[in-house]
Computed example of a mutant assay.
Amino acid sequence: MDLENMCSTSALQALSKLLSFPGEEDDNLEQVSYPSSVVGALSPGNIGPEKKEKSKVNPPNKPENKNDIWDLEEVPEGAEFDDMWDPREQPEYDIIFKQQVGAEDLFLGMTRKDPSTACCEDLMVKIKLPGIKASDITLDIHEKVLDLRTPSHKLLLHLPHPVDSKIGKASFITEKEMLEVILTMKREFDFINFF
């Protein structure tokens, strides 16, 4: 059997008939005859009955706006603060999880706390800011974003855990040229941390 006979339109139509679902009526299938110049453009997608495209249906609560490029769910939180053209350098920082422990935790193990981050209540961010004074720092805290700006540094930090933006403490340590920000994490009530 040569290659031309295998790629002919009649061979593809016969293969389409073999691959059709049992019980389909032949009169519903249209026999399409392709000119010989189109035979090279046939592909496996042409085998079988033609598929009707499904119409795109909008979710019930979302009106379609043709000017929108993307949905609000696709934009990450804190993206409105990001400025990739800002030439200021990003300072070095560390994220440290903190937990409040007492004697009942250390010696008696009464509260079921362990050293894991699941038992931590606070989040500490240490940011090194060489050559900066405390009066030059602008700090803005949101639930999942820490935004720090100085004349020579910019840090947009997506926090690993949601925090309470109204409760927190920031202190600038002049000797180390470091800003320490302590934030209280928003935690679900569980049997380890709150019982």
Rank of each mutant, 00 (worst) to 15 (best):
K62V: 14
K66V: 14
N67R: 10
D68C: 08
D68Y: 08
I69F: 07
W70K: 08
W70R: 10
E73K: 14
E74I: 02
V75M: 10
P76C: 03
P76T: 11
P76N: 04
E77S: 08
E80W: 01
F81L: 15
D82N: 05
D82W: 08
M84C: 07
M84H: 10
W85A: 15
D86H: 01
P87E: 12
R88S: 04
Q90Y: 02
Q90H: 05
Q90D: 05
P91M: 06
E92I: 09
Y93P: 00
I95V: 15
I95G: 00
I95A: 00
I96C: 12
I96H: 12
I96G: 05
I96M: 12
I96V: 13
F97W: 15
F97G: 07
G102C: 06
E104T: 08
L108V: 06
G109A: 05
G109T: 02
M110D: 10
M110R: 14
M110E: 14
T111K: 13
T111A: 02
T111S: 09
K113D: 02
T117G: 00
A118L: 08
C119P: 03
C120R: 04
E121T: 10
D122P: 00
D122I: 03
M124C: 14
V125H: 02
V125I: 15
K126L: 10
G131W: 05
I132K: 06
A134T: 04
S135G: 09
D136P: 02
I137A: 09
T138M: 08
V145H: 03
D147S: 13
T150E: 08
T150D: 08
S152T: 15
H153G: 01
H153F: 15
H153D: 07
L155C: 08
L156S: 11
P162A: 03
V163T: 05
D164R: 05
S165R: 13
G168A: 02
G168S: 07
K169Q: 12
K169I: 02
A170T: 11
S171Q: 12
I173A: 10
I173C: 11
E175Y: 01
E175P: 00
K176H: 08
K176D: 12
E177P: 01
L179W: 04
E180A: 10
E180Y: 13
M185C: 08
R187W: 03
E188Q: 12
D190G: 13
